[in-house]
Amino acid sequence: MSLDAATVRRIAKLARIRVEEEEVAVLAAELNGILGYVAQLDEVDVTGVEPLSGGAQMAMRLRDDVVTDGEMAEKILANAPERSGDFFTVPKVVE
């Protein structure tokens, strides 16, 4: 599976990272290098193997339903690059 320029652009779009035209070829080469490297997994037989997704092997604890957090809009907004009153703001979205 080799990654072409169009795929690099599509992936960059999905990842919301602006990629300049001149970067595309370099990125494609680097990403193909990594994909080529990980392709050695093709030789492993995993028939009947259950995937391991988490780092911990136990069942999940459940929390009690009580309000213990929130009511601190100022702290929530303190790091905002831009705000209007107690709202975060972004460029206007047209739907």
């Binding site: 339903d65 009511e71 809009a73 929530i76």
Partner: peptide, 21 residues
């Protein structure tokens, strides 16, 4: 009472960003 994955209030309404952890 509280949210699915946090202890902030799940009550409808409230001042902007008040029910937020």
């Amino acid at each position: 009472e509280s949210k699915l994955f946090s202890g902030a209030s799940a009550t409808y309404g409230g001042a902007p960003n008040a029910h937020v952890s």
